[in-house]
Amino acid sequence: MPSRRIPGSAKVVVPSQPGSAWQSVRVTDTGPAASRVLRPPERYHLGGSLRSLAMGAHDPCARFVDGTFWWATRTPAGPATLALRRSGADLVADGYGPGADWALDRADAVAGLRDDLTDFDRLAAGHPLVDRLARTHRGLRLPATGQVFPRLLRAILEQKVTGKEAFRAYAATVRRFGAPAPGPLTGLWTPPEPAVIASTPYWVFHPFGVEQRRAETLRRAAAEADRLERCADPVEATGRLTAIAGIGPWTAAEVVRIAFGDPDAVSVGDYHIPNMVAWALAGEVRGDDARMLALLEPFRGHRGRVCVLLEAGGHHAPRFGPRMPIRSFARF
């Protein structure tokens, strides 16, 4: 595939985050190793489809800069950066680094273009709100990265903490154990090597706000990363994930939804999702996991997709009570 140079350069100043040392990022003129042109479906929404791959606007491994989505990863051939951008009706994928070819081969899956909506319209028609959301957000597609451990790293650090705590821990871990990503975007990092995480004592994670329980879970998961990456489908991956101490159905669902693009993955055990589903589908202010699964049962095969649509539509349940406090383990 022919190389393509990116004309010009653009500088983006990233706002500072509490507890983090942020720097400006810059897109230089360094051209990609190779490019691929994809044809997305009509009404395809790039931002909405890829939003789940980044942990907020300042994810160290994935982010939007001037309309281009940058995603850094490790591949069997080495580190790679994939850049996805619209060009008229097309979607252009540019690859950088030793793993560029691997990343470009999966570019359509990462963009959600392999997402299969077979039979979803029929199921969605059974509920007026879901039917409306399915038509309104027709351009949303579920990405499938084909990689388990990078999403597992983030999911473990998100367990039972606030979003701010999780982000601080994730960003600090990536910057401590990862490496600058190939390509023209400064400030982008490749995820850590699992072997490095597995060999790191749990107390090293304390300054990042990670207590011993999550740190040990992360180390155990990293030791099993090779086996996890060889899983053929979401069912096998879920079984192997939940066999690791400290990983339950919530973490497994968060991982297989992204790694495999599983449209049926439901995050059982989530603090907010049961309430969102109960409120949106039944008008009930609060719901538990059992009620959530009962309401989602008519959409089996696409239950996770329904949750994604409800979130995209902003159908969150009313909130009561104080927010969860932010804790610090830095001095433990």
Rank of each mutant, 00 (worst) to 15 (best):
P76R: 11
P192R: 05
P143D: 11
E229W: 06
A134R: 15
T186A: 13
T238R: 15
V27W: 06
G261W: 03
G178W: 09
A72F: 08
Q159M: 03
A290F: 00
V285G: 00
G99E: 07
Y44S: 00
G178N: 13
R135M: 07
E216Q: 15
D262H: 01
P7A: 08
A172Q: 15
P184I: 10
V27K: 05
A237P: 13
L104C: 07
F299W: 09
M292P: 02
V256H: 04
V92S: 02
L188Y: 04
M292Q: 13
H127R: 10
R74T: 14
V14C: 10
D226R: 09
L152K: 11
L281Y: 02
C231K: 01
I326E: 15
I6D: 12
A57K: 14
R230G: 03
P325W: 01
A282H: 05
D233M: 04
F260I: 09
P128N: 13
A100H: 05
W71L: 14
I6N: 09
G248M: 02
A312G: 02
G209C: 04
A93V: 05
E229V: 10
G47L: 01
G187T: 02
F332V: 09
G19T: 07
A72Q: 13
G99F: 04
A57N: 09
P18E: 06
C231T: 14
D270S: 12
A83P: 06
P150M: 06
Y271N: 05
E158G: 05
V266Q: 05
A171H: 13
A144Q: 07
Y96D: 03
A57H: 09
Y44H: 04
K160G: 00
T68R: 14
W279D: 02
G67Y: 06
A10E: 05
T162G: 09
D288W: 03
Q23P: 00
G163Y: 07
A21L: 13
V148W: 00
A21W: 06
A10N: 01
A125D: 14
G287T: 06
L91S: 01
W250C: 10
I247L: 15
T242H: 08
E297Y: 00
E42L: 03
A103L: 06
V92H: 03
A33H: 13
A223Q: 03
R114A: 13
A195Y: 00
V204Y: 08
A221D: 06
F320Q: 13
R26A: 08
P192L: 03
T81F: 06
V92D: 01
D108C: 04
A290I: 05
G146P: 13
A259F: 05
L84V: 00
R240P: 09
G187E: 01
W102A: 02
F329E: 09
L117A: 14
R213N: 07
S328K: 10
G183S: 10
V285I: 12
T75W: 13
P40M: 03
R106I: 04
A125Y: 08
A223S: 15
A100E: 02
A134E: 14
E229K: 06
D29V: 03
H206K: 14
P41L: 07
E224T: 10
